[in-house]
Design a protein around this nucleic acid. Structure first.
Length: 330
RNA sequence: GUCGCUCCUGAU
C-alpha cells in the first residue's frame, strides 16, 4: 500500500506514465486499497497518456471516497478530460466549481486549446476575472499553434509581464512558420534563456535546412550557462546527418554519455539515422542493439539505414525480428 | 509519501 504509492510517485516523477498505469491496474487486480495519495498521481498519469478508461474509473473512486470537492482535484479532472479530448465533461466540472481560482481557469482554457476549440478558449480568456502570466502564455501559444503569429505577437506585446515561457512560446510560433530569422531575433532578446529557448531555435534552423547555423548555435550553447538536454541532441544530430559530419556526430554521442543525457527512443533514433547517413552502419547497429526501448520509428530507421547501404539480408532479418516483437511496421 | 495550469524533441 505504502510501497505502491511510493512506486507510483516515482514513475510519475520520471514521466513513466505507462508504467504507473500498469502498476495501478495491478493494484486494482490485487485489491490493494487506493487512497487519496493514489488518486492524484494516477490521475496525472492517465491524463498524460490520454487514457479515458482509467481516468473515468479514478473519477468515480474519487467521488465515492468524497475527495471530489476540492478545487485541485477538480482541476486535475478537467485536465484529464481535455487530454482525452472530451471538453464538455471538463466544462461540466468547471462550471460546478464554486470557488474558481486562476489555475482552474487556465486549465480549462488550455484544455479547449488541446481540443482545438479555439473560440471557446478565447471567450473564456476574455471572461477571466484575474489573469496571471500562464493565462497569457496559454493564449499566446494558442495563436502560435494556429499559425496566427500576428495576433500572437500583438498579445505578447500587450501582456503585463513576460516570463521565459512567454518568450519561448512566441519564438516557437515564428519557428513553426519557418521564420528562422525572426525566431532568432527574439531569441537574442530573451532576458533569461533556458534550454527550451535554445532547443526551439536550433530545431528551427534544422527544419529549414540551415544546418551550419544550427551547429553554430549549439556551439554557442556550450559556452552558455545552459546545459543541453536530450531534446537538444535530438535537434542537432540531424544537422550532422545532413552534412555528413561524422566527427561532430560522434562528438555529440560521446557528449551524451559524459553529461548523463537520457538515452531515450528519440535520441537513439536520431543517432542511428546520423550514423547511417554518415556512412557508419556498424555504429548505427551498435546503438540499435543497445537501445532498451524500441518502437516502430526506431526499427524503421534501422531497417532503412541497412537498406541504404545495400545490406538487404540484414535489413530483412531486422524486419522479421520486428514482426516477431509484434511491432506494427510503419 | 500531497496534490492541479502554460513553452522545445525522432526515420520516410
Amino acid at each position: 500500500q505504502f510501497f505502491y504509492n511510493a512506486m507510483l510517485k516515482g514513475y510519475s516523477e520520471t514521466g513513466a506514465h505507462e508504467n504507473a498505469l500498469q502498476l495501478y491496474s495491478l493494484m486494482r487486480a490485487s485489491s490493494v486499497t487506493c487512497d487519496s495519495y493514489t488518486f492524484p498521481v494516477v490521475l496525472r498519469s492517465s491524463s498524460n497518456v490520454g487514457n479515458i478508461e482509467v481516468g473515468e474509473e479514478i473519477h468515480g473512486l474519487i467521488m465515492k471516497g468524497g475527495f471530489g470537492s476540492r478545487v485541485i482535484v477538480q482541476t486535475a479532472l478537467i485536465d484529464m478530460y481535455c487530454n482525452c479530448g472530451i471538453s464538455n465533461y471538463a466544462q461540466r466540472i468547471f462550471d460546478r466549481i464554486s470557488e474558481k481560482d486562476v489555475i482552474c481557469w487556465n486549465t480549462m482554457i488550455a484544455g479547449y486549446v488541446k481540443c482545438g476549440e479555439f473560440e471557446s478558449a478565447r471567450d473564456l480568456f476574455n471572461q477571466m476575472p484575474l489573469r496571471n502570466v500562464s493565462s497569457w502564455n496559454t493564449i499566446v501559444d494558442m495563436y502560435c499553434k494556429k499559425g496566427d503569429v500576428e495576433t500572437a505577437s500583438r498579445l505578447f506585446n500587450e501582456m503585463p509581464e513576460r516570463d521565459v515561457i512567454s518568450w519561448n512560446a512566441m519564438i516557437s510560433g515564428y519557428a513553426k512558420m519557418g521564420y528562422c530569422d525572426e525566431a532568432r531575433r527574439l531569441f537574442d532578446m530573451v532576458p533569461k534563456r533556458n534550454v527550451v529557448s535554445w532547443n526551439t531555435v536550433i530545431t528551427c534552423y534544422v527544419h529549414n535546412r540551415r544546418f551550419h547555423e544550427a551547429l553554430e548555435l549549439f556551439r554557442m550553447m556550450q559556452v552558455s550557462e545552459v546545459k543541453p538536454n536530450e531534446v537538444t541532441v535530438v535537434a542537432v544530430l540531424p544537422a550532422c546527418a545532413h552534412l555528413g559530419a561524422l566527427d561532430m556526430g560522434q562528438w555529440i554521442h560521446a557528449y551524451i554519455g559524459k553529461n548523463q543525457i537520457k538515452m531515450d527512443v528519440y535520441v537513439n533514433t536520431t543517432l542511428i539515422d546520423m550514423y547511417g547517413k554518415c556512412g557508419s552502419v556498424q555504429e548505427a547497429r551498435r546503438v540499435f542493439d543497445n537501445a532498451v526501448e524500441k518502437d516502430s520509428f526506431l526499427w524503421g530507421t534501422m531497417i532503412e539505414v541497412l537498406a541504404m547501404h545495400g545490406k538487404a539480408e540484414e535489413a530483412f532479418e531486422i524486419f522479421e525480428r520486428m514482426r516477431r516483437a509484434k511491432i506494427k511496421p510503419n
